[in-house]
Design a protein around this nucleic acid. Structure first.
Length: 239
DNA sequence: GCGACAG
DNA sequence: ATCTTGTCGC
């Protein structure tokens, strides 16, 4: 599951060339198995950015008796940070750690939701698309802000969305996942169409802005989570 | 040449 | 992303 170093420690120009090559291998038509497990992935940083912390949350999908999502596994993987953040090259900074976390998972999900862009990227290879190719699994990019593409204002109702376009084609959707809250950016990563991607994100939506897989992974990857779990076991003076 | 710019 | 407390609003 480990990736050869030469695949990640690249100079910007080389990374860009690789992205263009990999993008041609993306599948944007649905090729997905029956979904039993959905994974959420996100990356956080510790020690002033010296350590990269990848988090993966595995949820069980239940179509029957009211769509339910239950957390069945959570894994965290830490390793030294290898690249700085460069807009457009995010995957080279985050994927190595994400793969380390996936290696610790005891079950393989049929669908993966990633915090970041899918094909809504200058070279169609956002972190979700890149990870999808590496895992050979269907992936969806769920970003909190825009990286690439143009769009018209989104409706105010939950579920409303507008196309994210670039170079004359639709590369994603700006979705109002919750009323009165800034919309999220959904784009296919690998092995999925935009329609199916939107479908799954919508189905995984709770009462919050982010879909459950990404929301939980986001929480687990953040340092806020340390304080969170610590507070639950630390003695409280008013207890 | 001047901005924009996931996390 | 991360540094950080209280606070305004549904």
């Amino acid at each position: 599951m480990d990736a050869p170093l030469h695949e990640w420690n690249l100079e910007p120009a080389e990374a860009i060339a690789l992205q263009k090559r990999l993008a041609t291998r993306l599948e944007l038509a649905d090729r997905i198995d029956e979904v039993a497990y959905i994974a959420g992935v996100d990356i956080g940083f510790e020690e002033a950015g010296e350590i990269t912390r990848a988090a993966v949350v595995l949820l069980e999908w239940n179509e029957i008796k009211a769509p339910t999502l239950e957390v069945v596994e959570q894994v965290i993987h830490r390793e030294p940070t290898r690249m700085p953040y460069v807009p457009g090259l995010l995957s080279f900074r985050e994927i190595p750690a994400a793969l380390g976390a996936f290696a610790k998972l005891s079950q393989t999900p049929q669908l993966v939701m990633v915090d970041g862009q899918g094909i809504a990227h200058p070279r169609k290879l956002g972190v979700a698309a890149h990870l999808g190719l590496w895992l050979d699994l269907p992936t969806i990019g769920v970003a909190k802000s825009r990286l690439y593409g143009r769009f018209e204002p989104v409706g105010e109702q939950r579920g409303d969305w507008s196309a994210l376009t670039a170079r004359g084609e639709t590369i994603g959707a700006v979705l109002r996942s919750r009323e009165k809250v800034k919309p999220i950016f959904v784009s296919p990563g690998h092995r999925l169409s935009l329609a199916t991607s939107l479908d799954w994100v919508t189905r995984c939506l709770g009462r919050t802005k982010l879909p459950e897989p990404t929301r939980l992974a986001d929480r687990l990857a953040s340092r806020r989570d340390e304080k969170r779990r610590k507070a639950s076991v630390e003695p409280t003076r008013d207890a």
